[in-house]
Structure formats: C-alpha cells, structure tokens
C-alpha cells in the first residue's frame, strides 16, 4: 500500500513537472511560430489631432471618419480692457474633413478672417512603422487653396477684384517622426503662392520652413508648438514668423486644443506670409480648436 502511494505520488509529480515544462514550451513555440511573420507595425497617433497648433499635422481623418473642426482665435491679449483683452474680437473657422481612405482626406473650411473659403487635399504618402520593412518617418503631402470673398468694391480705395486675384495656394510636405510614445516632431517645407499681392514689392511665392512638436505630459495632456520660419526675402523682412504654443486636452470623445499664437489666422496663406504680431511684445492671441469625430463608415 505504502509502496503504491509512493509510486503514485512520484508519477503525479513527474506528470505535473512534465505539464509545466510543456506549458512554457508551448508559448515559446508559439512565439517562434509568430516571430517569422514579424508584423509590420504602423506607428499611430503621432499627433493627437489633424492640427498641431496652427499647422496641419501628418494625421488624417482616416477611412470613413468625418471631423468637424471648430477653430476660434480671440483678439490680441494686449488690446486692453476696452476690448476685454481680446475676447471681444474673435475670429472663427469652421471646417469639415473627411477621410476617403486611410491615406486620403479632403477638407473644406470657412474663416471669418478675410471671409475666406478654403479647401485642401491631404495624402499620407508614407507611414512610420516598426518590424519588417520599418519606415522611420511619416510623410503627408498637402495641397490647399483659399479664396477670399470680401467685397473690395465697398472699400474707399481700389476697385472690385477679379476672382483670380482672390485665390492663393498652399503646398506642404509634412515630415514627422514619433520618437517615443510621448514625443513627436514634424518638419514642414512650405510654399505659399498668392495670385495677387497688394504691394509692388510683395512676393507672389513665399517659401517657409515650419517645425512642430508634441510632448505628452500625461496620457491625456500634451504640450504642442509650431513655428514657421520665412526664408529670406521681402516677406521675411516685412512680416513675422508665426509661432503657436498649445495644450492638447483629450476628453474621450474629442480633443480640445488650447493655444497662444502671434497670429489670429487659421489657414496657411494667412498665417505663414501675413503674420504681424510680435509674440514677446504681447501680440498674443488666445484660441482653441475643438475636433469632433463622426464615424460615417464603421471600421468593423
């Protein structure tokens, strides 16, 4: 009897030992099996929204997603108590952006500044990824156009302007890398073409190099900044480089972006070559961007 117990116990022990051994083996086996198909993992959420502060980010709406964008810029903080430190004179842009695929997004918007309608196409050419055939950066190409609908004929000087003279174009390459889950940076070579410039010395083509970054403070808070350096020329001599500093707040359903900038404009042809504010002299505009996402086409 005693002998049998001992035998049984030993058998049980060896079985459990065998089982435990097999178990770790099985997972290791699985890892081996799946390792050979090392997944190409796309890096997502380089930026929280389709805008960093003023500038477009590499992010697009994504297939079947409609984004409703409400952008608000109050007046300059240094405009005094009479203007309630800028809160009286606000500029607004309402925009819609729709993702026709994960790569292509088309957008339209209307800015109160210059009573301007704008439209753009944004195409994700490259997406940062890890794993097999890793891609170090994301590249999004942007082409935009804007038309001002101001009735110039009502002005005391000059006459009504032709349609062509009201149009401007934006060409941008947005090159970004998410260096870590918390830190992303972006470079933005930019060309703005204006069909018409008021001053005879004005440049129709304005080149600028933009840079932007995001640093997460917590899971739902991030500091952002973007800056456009105007390449030497008449525009660079007359106007200021646009600077934006922001705070992204994610609430779950949507993203709030609170910001301070030396420009009140919200589209490239207005803020890249036409910024006049001196940020550090108090020409600071407080503003916010709210993005609400609607799922038109289900991802499932």
């Amino acid at each position: 009897m005693q002998l049998f117990t001992r035998f049984a116990l030993a058998g049980l022990a060896s079985l459990t030992f065998g089982a435990a051994h097999a178990q770790t083996d099985l997972l290791a086996d699985l890892e081996k099996q799946t390792a050979d198909t090392a997944r190409r993992e796309v890096v997502t959420a380089t930026f929280k929204g389709t805008r960093i502060v003023n500038a477009h980010s590499v992010e697009t709406a994504g297939n079947g997603t409609l984004i409703f964008l409400i952008q608000h810029r109050f007046g300059a903080l240094n405009s005094g108590a009479y203007e309630f430190f800028g809160l009286d004179g606000a500029a607004l842009r309402l925009g819609f952006e729709y993702g026709f695929s994960n790569r292509l997004t088309l957008g339209v918007g209307r800015s109160s500044t210059g009573k301007t309608f704008d439209g753009f196409a944004k195409y994700r050419a490259l997406q940062q990824s890890t794993g097999a055939r890793a891609m170090p950066v994301s590249l999004t190409l942007l082409v935009g156009t804007a038309i001002t609908t101001v009735k110039f004929g009502m002005a005391p000087v000059g006459g009504e302007r032709s349609t062509a003279s009201r149009v401007s174009y934006t060409y941008q390459a947005l090159l970004a890398r998410k260096f870590s889950p918390g830190f992303s940076a972006q470079l933005m070579p930019t060309l703005i073409h204006r069909n018409f410039v008021e001053q005879p010395t004005g440049q129709n083509d304005v080149y600028a190099l933009g840079a932007g970054l995001r640093q997460k403070l917590s899971k739902r808070l991030a500091l952002t900044a973007d800056y456009f350096y105007l390449l030497p020329g008449n525009t660079a001599d007359t106007y200021r480089n646009a600077l934006g500093l922001g705070l992204d707040i994610e609430t779950g359903g949507h993203v709030f972006q609170l910001l301070f900038s030396n420009t009140q404009a919200m589209i490239e042809p207005q803020f890249v070559p036409q910024t006049t504010g001196q940020f550090f002299s108090g020409d600071v505009y407080f503003g916010f961007t709210v993005a609400r996402n609607f799922t038109v086409k289900s991802g499932l």
């Binding site: 065998g18 089982a19 097999a22 178990q23 099985l26 997972l27 086996d29 699985l30 890892e31 799946t34 997944r39 993992e41 796309v42 997502t44 959420a45 994504g62 297939n63 079947g64 997603t65 889950p181 899971k219 739902r220 994610e250 779950g252 996402n293 799922t295 289900s298 991802g299 499932l300």
Partner: peptide
Amino acid sequence: GSGQLAFALPITGFVFKRALMQEHFNEN
C-alpha cells in the same frame, strides 16, 4: 495529448467601429 493550450495576440490587432476609439484603446 497534454491538454495544454496557449495563445498570443497583438493588442494593435483589435479593430473598432470608430477609429478614434481604437486610437484611445491603444494609446491610453
């Protein structure tokens, strides 16, 4: 034979109806 079983799955493989939800799921 041994009654053992194991599985592994990439978290980023989860697909949601809403892209933003998927992003939050992975990011946060």
